[in-house]
Simulated scan of single mutants.
Amino acid sequence: MTKGKIKVSSDNIFPIIKKFLYSDHEIFLRELVSNAIDASKKLQSLETMGKFKGEIGDLTIVVELDKDAKTLTIKDRGVGMDEQEVERYINDIALSGAEEFVSKYKDKADTANLIGHFGLGFYSSFMVADNVEIVTKSHKKSAKAVKWTCDGSPNYTLVDNDRKERGTDIILHISDESKEFLEEFRIRELLVKYCKFLPVKIQFGTNEETVKDKDGNPVKDKDDKEKKITTPNIINNTSPAWKKQPSKLKDEDYKSFYRELYPMNFEEPLFQIHLNVDFPFNLTGILYFPKLKNKIEVQKDKIQLYANQVFVTDSVEGIVPEFLTLLHGVLDSPDIPLNISRSYLQSDARVKQISGHIT
């Protein structure tokens, strides 16, 4: 009998990651923003444990688009990385920093809401970019900032950088084949689709608002023109209704959230059920019973499935029985088994348990 270790060539695995790992290339933005969320949540956990003594400050994640430079940048002010961590978490494919963090601090802090699991999300960036840069500085004292650059081959460069603030910038140089991701409307569409309920503020662009007095009237300047101010455009609701305790919500809160989910649906639901299960699996959500029309039309895309507030799919046939697909609403569970790209459900005993609870 012969025993050995299977070898994987990085030259061969990169094309697989870039072309076939994810069913839809647009998912790259969900993955990169999820990583930024994890970096921010880790910093909050470290502060709670007393392992970070600095100023947390504003943790808003910023997504910036530069059409002229053909770049898309995702910025966070989370834990950041030093040179050794870049070598470990970026250059070692499929090593999940979130998984390692949970393992290290599972008994000391709330780590249940970290998103990452497979350690592959970052590499989805190469599905749409010719070149990717990481500029990062760790939260650790005396840590030096570094810049990592890769053109999608197994070769990379890692050099010192003069970044002063902790955190990480991921800079994607968008390829000609993926120029749709240089359009503002497309990026906004994806952020709203995948990230609109993530737990850390996400900014994309700015809004111009009229300054108003205490009575709600526009304030005029010396030229009798309305005063305007520029404010960050925050695309997400960091505290959606399903994450709150039912006892804290009123009927109007549920109706307001329904309108947030379905802004083009002008009929209010008949009633709702707020799910909050923590054993033998974790499941939260709100299911709404819509007003039925004379002709019942079963729409199978009205229930949205989330994993730790990240949108996964609206195809929930495996978890919601067909006779209940006329319902609207949200289901969220970190225990729902997903494929490695987090694009669809994998059927197993947990799915049957959750389905049984819903019915």
Rank of each mutant, 00 (worst) to 15 (best):
G57A: 02
G57E: 02
G57H: 00
G57Q: 01
G57R: 02
D58K: 05
D58S: 02
D58F: 06
T60P: 07
T60D: 05
I61S: 04
I61M: 07
I61Q: 04
I61F: 03
V63T: 10
V63L: 10
D66L: 06
K67I: 11
D68S: 11
D68K: 12
D68C: 00
D68N: 11
K70H: 08
T71V: 06
T71M: 02
L72R: 04
T73C: 13
T73K: 15
I74D: 08
I74G: 08
R77L: 14
G78K: 05
V79L: 08
G80Q: 00
M81T: 04
M81F: 13
Q84C: 02
Q84Y: 05
Q84L: 10
Q84F: 04
Q84T: 07
V86P: 02
E87M: 12
R88E: 13
R88D: 09
N91A: 04
N91W: 02
N91M: 10
I93M: 10
I93V: 13
I93K: 07
L95R: 13
L95K: 13
S96E: 06
G97T: 06
A98D: 12
E99D: 15
E99M: 15
E100N: 11
E100S: 11
F101E: 02
F101G: 03
V102K: 14
Y105Q: 01
K106H: 12
K108F: 14
A109N: 09
A109H: 09
D110A: 11
D110G: 07
A112M: 12
A112T: 14
N113C: 09
N113S: 13
N113Q: 14
I115H: 15
G116C: 09
H117V: 14
H117G: 15
H117D: 13
H117T: 14
H117C: 12
H117P: 05
F118H: 13
F118A: 12
F118G: 07
G119H: 09
G119T: 10
G119P: 11
G119R: 09
L120T: 12
L120M: 11
G121E: 14
F122W: 08
S124H: 07
S124Y: 08
S125I: 10
S125K: 10
F126L: 07
F126I: 03
M127E: 10
M127T: 14
M127Y: 00
V128Y: 01
V128L: 06
V128D: 07
V128C: 06
A129V: 00
D130L: 01
N131Y: 13
N131G: 02
E133M: 01
I134K: 04
T136F: 00
T136V: 03
T136G: 03
T136H: 01
